[in-house]
Design a protein around this nucleic acid. Structure first.
Lengths: 341, 341
DNA sequence: CTGTTAGCGCGTTCAC
DNA sequence: GTGAACGCGCTAACAG
């Protein structure tokens, strides 16, 4: 039989309450007594039943998700996943509240991270904007003992507990690796479309892509990066022009959003020569374009996994438990038309 | 406040025990009473607290994993993951027992699936061999109410509750899609190395590969399949010979195990021409070969995810709960040297 | 058929 | 400092 607190109490010759105090690191126990209890726990191999503890405490984990109000498909999907998780709250003992802030608005983000708001939470998940004021706000929360998980976009050098997102530099390198193999031996130019290079994940993807290309594909050069601001119309304009101006283009890597515009431009393209295209995020539009053969590869991060992972990590941190590291690693999904979910 | 069984009892004007009987579909309640309770549950939006129920029942889920004794890296990893899950048992209320059977031995598998053994289990996970006697054994267990999850390798047309593994046909198609893009426009032969085509997953991968190639790559043909029986030495011999005989070979797809031998043969290869290689399963050896540039792509299934998923599904089925479908989908991981975990 | 009651393993007042 | 006793939401005997 698994030992319980009773067994510990008996073994240590103390009462339940004392065992409980030691278990939860609360004051009111003399050092020697504390040691005796510790020894008993060790000796019997006691592992506390978190479910029972939560029942006794009627514990719910009040969690706060701070999300930007971007309206691209990915952020919509992310918000939908958070909402789905919120609805599962009763079953999972979570009470999730969602705070929406204007995209890329550092000040708004910082005030959402202010202590008074956060204090009611057992943990916070935030799509970070990489800025020193945000970093300070996050660090302060961690110092106060409120665990923070960055979601999708990380915060460099901060004390956040965990990052639930993909390695964007690796994503860029992977795009380069694929592109290089698709265009093996050829010489010429590749175009890159980004949302904005002020956003950390886009920057990282670009860095990874450039590094990968430089290392493995001597013949390929990259045209000046087009910034489409993640807006379909703008992306459409930029890419249309590009395709017209550079009929010799060898490949295209889109590392931001707004791919609806890119796909439209590709569909309108006149030349029927081969043009390998790699984009990010699986949406209704990129899925269709993949099937139609307009694009070759979609690199994706699973928003559902990211949200569920953030919740698991926050809950675990909230009561000092460990997590299964491999389970919390967000992978870079690579989709061809052949392995769509 | 979330309604509890007490609230239901009060609302329906019955006692706790009656509510409990209705909740658990146990006999001893007249139809009208049953209806009243049902109505109360509906009205108050009661959701039962599984954790509390499990606590009251001191429930543990006795789970049985039936695994083959193959000694290739993947099966070793799978067994290690099951062992890790077994050790987590106390925390997750599971009691996992492992039964090891000789690989590809249908009879041994069937007797492991016999009722007497299975009866002590709340659920069974099995690496299936696709055979009608196995199917019958599995179907009988399901009829008896013991949920069965197939792991890694599925059982066609059976009643198993769930398959925790990748879509192998999609994997084959994906290999073809990548190979076709790597070799765009070229004409010539590709070689395929399998373990044994008697194994369902290998067969499916091959079918997918052939179909994909036929559909998208008119210039590429496939040489007669080499069967390496998943043994490194044998694979080494076959591939060495192949590379010698066919210096014009365009690409190589290895859909089985024993890749240690394949990698050795590649390392010994004289010609320095390009030879795209796609293999399955990320192991110590394939990882190293990926880094060294001997192989280009590793298609992988995450054994840890498969095991954890099987456990979640079996637990959920055991008490009639649902699962988050997206979470239980085992994806095909595609690794380049650039996105290794 | 239905109701009463005592736990499951743990946390938390309160007294002592 | 320490302990006894009750309750969290639910199940399982045992009565009635």
């Amino acid at each position: 039989m698994k030992p319980t607190v009773y067994d510990i109490a008996a073994e240590a010759g103390v009462s339940l309450a004392t065992v409980d105090r030691v278990l939860n690191d609360r004051p009111g126990v003399r050092q020697p007594t504390r040691e005796r209890v510790r020894a008993a726990i060790e000796k019997l191999g006691f592992v506390r039943d978190v479910a029972a503890a939560n029942l006794a405490k009627s514990r719910v984990y009040p969690l706060t998700f701070i999300l930007p109000n971007n309206d691209n498909s990915f952020m919509q999907a992310l918000r939908a996943e958070v909402e789905a998780a919120r609805l599962r709250g009763p079953t999972e003992r979570t009470a999730i509240s969602v705070v929406t802030v204007p995209a890329f608005d550092t000040e708004a983000l910082v005030s959402a991270l202010e202590l008074p708001l956060a204090e009611k939470s057992a943990g916070i998940a935030v799509v970070a904007v990489d800025d020193s004021s945000v970093r300070r706000a996050v660090d302060r929360l961690e110092e106060e003992g409120i665990p923070v998980v960055t979601l999708v976009s990380d915060l460099a050098e901060s004390r956040r507990t965990h990052f639930a997102g993909v390695d964007n530099e690796a994503a860029g390198r992977t795009a380069a690796g694929l592109m290089g193999r698709f265009l093996y031996g050829q010489e010429g130019a590749i175009a890159v479309v980004a949302g904005s290079l002020k956003v950390r994940d886009h920057r990282q993807r670009l860095d990874g892509f450039m590094a990968g290309l430089a290392a493995d594909c001597p013949g390929l050069t990259v045209l000046p990066v087009l910034e489409g601001l993640d807006e379909p119309a703008r992306v459409h304009g930029l890419v249309s022009e590009l395709l017209k101006d550079r009929p010799d283009l060898l490949g295209l890597y889109s590392l931001g959003a707004g791919n609806r515009g890119l796909i439209r431009a590709l569909a309108e393209r006149q030349e029927k020569t081969r043009l390998p295209v790699v984009v990010h995020e699986l949406t209704e539009h990129t899925r269709a374009a993949l099937k139609d053969g307009l694009i070759d590869i979609v690199l994706n991060q699973d928003a559902g996994h990211e949200v569920r992972s953030a919740i698991r990590v926050l809950k675990a941190r909230a009561d000092g438990q460990g997590v299964i590291a491999a389970q919390e690693r967000i992978r870079l999904d690579i989709f061809l038309k052949d392995n769509l979910p």
